[in-house]
């Protein structure tokens, strides 16, 4: 046995890998397989499945009723990534340009809300945004700035805000990691070569921070697309995302094959996004985000 282990390092590697791999095989790969198989089956009247292969579920996804939700989810994920980048990039830049001690403190300060329970953070916004009793509307009306409450709740705005709040640190950290690595001499060299402030940014800083931007965008886009808690709480039951529809198929409507098809499609979109992300080399900068 010892000789065999020594002669074949692969054997040692697999012995170490076996427990976790078996766990994931049993409780991840096989479940994934079940969902994929289910997506090609049909439901029966009792909420079970009929073993009859068909593409009906995938056809149904393109039924305007559901496809609109799918597009809406993509739209929300896009908005979330966009606003996270728009507001997160300057913040990452702000952190990266502070002196080292301040910088570390600021990164830590960013981690604290990030490590806070997602549900808690979403709930915090609920107490601020609710239409009649939300803090923002209550205060604005008390100060006489408003006659009637602003529509802050149960809409695209509320969901996007909640997701931006939840995932923006995932955008900031990789961008910060990329910015922090930029050699200051490069900026000086660019200035030495007559580049103005804006040109230094556009020609040197932005391209060098791009891996961080790509990583951050993926890290925000993917979980936003699969969001369930945020639309459930801040959407006020009015605006649904794909995650809520899937949940309904599994817990409410008992149409597992259709729910599976929706999940498979959602994962396919994410896989596509991930492939783009690895292609552009974003994974290296992305480690800062974990």
């Amino acid at each position: 046995m010892n000789d065999a282990l020594r002669r074949y390092p692969a054997l040692r590697a697999w012995l170490l890998l076996a427990p976790s791999f078996l766990w994931l095989l049993l409780f991840f790969i096989i479940p994934l397989g079940i969902i994929v198989v289910y997506s090609f089956l049909q439901r029966d009247v009792y909420g079970g499945v009929v073993w009859k292969w068909s593409l009906d579920n995938y056809r149904r996804v393109f039924d305007p009723l559901y496809f609109k939700t799918f597009l809406y989810s993509l739209w929300i994920a896009f908005l979330t990534a966009f606003f996270s980048l728009l507001f997160g990039y300057p913040l990452a830049y702000f952190i990266a340009t502070r002196p080292e001690k301040t910088r570390n403190a600021l990164v830590l300060a960013l981690m604290i809300p990030f490590w806070t329970n997602f549900l808690v953070r979403t709930y915090a916004w609920l107490t601020l945004l609710r239409t009649n009793t939300g803090l923002i509307n209550v205060w604005l009306m008390q100060w006489g700035l408003l006659d009637k409450p602003l529509p802050l709740f149960g809409n695209t705005f509320a969901i996007t805000l909640g997701l931006v709040y939840g995932w923006m640190p995932d955008m900031i950290l990789p961008i910060y990691a990329a910015l922090e690595q930029i050699d200051h001499r490069l900026l000086e060299a660019a200035e030495d070569l007559y580049a103005s402030g804006w040109q230094v940014f556009r020609r040197v800083i932005w391209p060098l921070s791009l891996p961080g931007v790509v990583a951050g965008t993926m890290l925000v886009f993917i979980p936003s697309l699969g969001a369930f808690v945020t639309p459930a709480i801040l959407g006020g039951g009015k605006r649904l995302m794909i995650g809520n529809v899937i949940t309904n198929q599994f817990l409410g409507a008992h149409d597992w094959p259709f729910g599976s098809a929706l999940s498979v499609l959602m994962m396919a979109v994410m896989l596509l996004a991930t492939l783009v992300y690895f292609r552009t080399g974003g994974d290296r900068a992305g480690q800062g985000g974990l």
């Binding site: 479940p31 699969g226 599994f250 599976s260 999940s263 994410m270």
Partner: peptide
């Protein structure tokens, strides 16, 4: 296999496990 659970959103993993 080891990377996938990080990438896949929790909602997908959740229904997979439920099924």
């Amino acid at each position: 296999t080891l990377y996938l659970p990080i990438i896949i959103p929790d909602i997908a993993m959740a229904i997979m496990l439920l099924a």
